[in-house]
Design a protein around this nucleic acid. Structure first.
Length: 512
RNA sequence: GGCGGAGUAGCUCAGCGGUAGAGCAGCGGAAUCAUAAUCCGUGGGUCGGGGGUUCGAAUCCCUCCUCCGCUACCA
């Protein structure tokens, strides 16, 4: 059982045969926001991402590139590390399936499952297409050919099998006991109904290629993809050293965030493997949706693949992070639209949030000599606004617990709206002449509210939030969630503030 | 075919037994501290169709229509 203050979150490991695209960027971004949130909330976080580097396709791609597979994966894995830097992700570890620590863990897991009697040697048979390098199910064939039109042949090869069929009832019990094991709920239903209909044993070794982890005691076999890939979640914790610090602290994982295409592997196979090896299943698996591009399905052949680097260049990093997390309820499919991206950047970030900061800080500069004003007695309106700011964290916590990132952001923007209304209602530009002390109190209340907002948006927009906190001269040590609320810190009256400059510029169309 | 989900304002969606809502877009107004940014006002939509339960249904039940997801070893 993991430590109570620990929080372990993972992305899938990404297959290196692919170039990083918006799908990869999105999954890791969501994890990053959650990981940052939990860290600021005082949790001991372990945030893992990495690359999946074994398999026939990689072996072949390396051969075609005239490279040794290891040298090849060293190179392509770097593209995913680069994405980490460009998107400002904050992983605590980056695992590669070609690392010794991983290979050791996979073989140990295999050995344990074998010792427990869950693995047996059998024969894998199916329709194989040499051209596609893939097996097809009988039901997939079209007129005796692969769906791709490629000819297929009946192939049998010796293979080790995992007794997945034996785990049906244990899995169903797991689901029954933990209705939040899979999110969103609709995915949970899919998983349950899949398992309910019965499970077949799983072929978990291959003899048709070499680039993988050898089966312990039978080096003719390579351990097949999913056993290899899924194990990354524990090999990164030092498995098989289950008494080690990392493993004891962080396993079971709090949440595996994945794309909906690999749900079954995570919600069915993975817990079965773990149970087979006497390990605890993860606490939760959350499957998010896919992006379309301007209403169109994204595909290489359509040429409408979205490159995260291009988004960052065009719209800005925090703008991109914000849009991706706010536009779509996390878990659902979403449509990427330039028009709505611009609308959110200009209306929500520039006008609502950025301009709130700018108008308040400008008034403080002009009316209060550029120093944090000293509040007098707080009026009911002031208390009301502060109460909203103070209460925001708890609301966000509730949403973050269930990976409702969009809702967490909604909460922040509710407070931003409230603050803008308060500015208009109080009209400090009028008060400053009639009642300067009252004006100071109003501006202090606003500055405090903005301090809360900036700390609360740190997980989502780290750099911009830091800039706002800089403008408020908030010390680095007072930027986590302990600094929030009635029991937290406050701005110190008299502190000199730097000259404010806009944090979220409006998006202007680049010249044609 | 089976299981699951969805059909509510121009668009995206919330509401899930008690006189139809939010955001965006549109229209009108106020303000002028601010990145011409803000604020206020403004919504006659058969809540997919039909039937039923109920004092009362978008909300429960039945049925039909349409759309989507899952229905095994494609990284």
């Amino acid at each position: 059982m993991s430590a109570p203050d620990a929080f372990y979150i993972t992305t899938p490991i990404y297959y290196v045969n692919d170039v990083p695209h918006i799908g990869h960027a999105y999954t890791t971004l969501a994890c990053d926001a959650i990981a940052r949130f939990m860290r600021l909330d005082g949790r001991r976080v372990h945030f893992l991402t990495g690359t999946d580097e074994h398999g026939q396709k990689v072996e072949k791609a390396a051969r075609e590139a005239g490279m040794d597979p290891k040298a090849f994966t060293d190179r392509v894995s770097e593209r995913f590390r680069e994405l980490v830097r460009v998107m400002d992700y904050s992983p605590d570890d980056f695992i590669r399936t070609t690392e010794d620590r991983h290979v050791r863990a996979v073989q140990a897991l295999w050995t344990r499952m074998a010792e427990n009697g869950w693995i047996y040697l059998g024969k894998y048979a199916g329709w194989y297409s040499v051209r596609d390098e893939a097996y097809y199910a009988e039901s997939e064939l079209v007129d005796g050919r692969a769906p791709t039109g490629a000819p297929v042949e009946w192939v049998e090869e010796p293979s080790y099998f995992f007794r997945l069929s034996a785990f049906r009832d244990r899995l169903l019990r797991l689901y029954a006991e933990r209705p939040d094991f899979v999110g969103p709920a609709t995915r949970f239903n899919e998983v349950v109904s899949f398992v309910r209909q019965g499970l077949q044993d799983l072929s978990i070794s291959r003899t048709t290629f070499r680039w993988g982890v050898p089966v312990p005691g039978d080096p003719d076999h390579v351990i097949y993809v999913w056993v290899d890939a899924l194990t990354n979640y524990i090999s990164a914790l030092g498995y098989p050293d289950v008494d080690g610090e990392l493993f004891r602290t962080f396993w079971p994982a709090d949440v595996h965030v994945i794309g909906k295409d690999i749900l079954r592997f995570h919600a069915v196979y993975w817990p079965a493997f773990l149970l087979a090896a006497d390990l605890e299943p993860p606490r939760r698996v959350f499957a998010h949706g896919w992006w379309t591009n301007e209403g169109q399905k994204i595909s290489k052949s359509l040429g409408n693949v979205i490159d995260p680097h291009a988004l960052v260049r065009r719209y800005g990093l925090d703008q991109t992070r914000y849009y991706l997390l706010r536009e779509v309820p996390f878990g659902q499919d979403g449509d990427f639209r330039h028009e709505s991206m611009v609308r959110r950047i200009n209306h929500e970030l520039a006008n609502d949030y950025g301009n709130l900061v700018q108008r308040v800080l400008t008034m403080i500069r002009r009316y209060c000599d550029g120093r944090v004003p000293a509040p007098g007695e707080l009026a009911a309106d002031d208390e009301a606004l502060l109460a909203r700011a103070h209460g925001c964290l708890d609301a966000m916590r509730r949403h973050m617990r269930e990976q409702a990132l969009h809702r967490a952001l909604d909460e922040v923007f509710e407070v931003i709206g409230e603050a803008n209304r308060y500015v208009d209602a109080q009209a400090p530009w009028t008060l400053r002449r009639r009642d300067p002390k009252r004006a100071a109190t109003v501006l202090w209340t606003l500055a405090e509210t903005i301090r809360h907002l900036a700390i609360l948006t740190r997980p989502f927009m780290p750099a911009s939030s830091a800039r706002i906190l800089d403008l408020l001269a908030v010390p680095a040590a007072e930027r986590d969630f302990r600094a929030l609320g009635p029991g937290g810190r406050t701005l110190r009256p008299g502190t000199a503030l730097p000259e404010p400059t806009p944090v979220f510029p409006r998006h202007r169309e680049e010249p044609a």
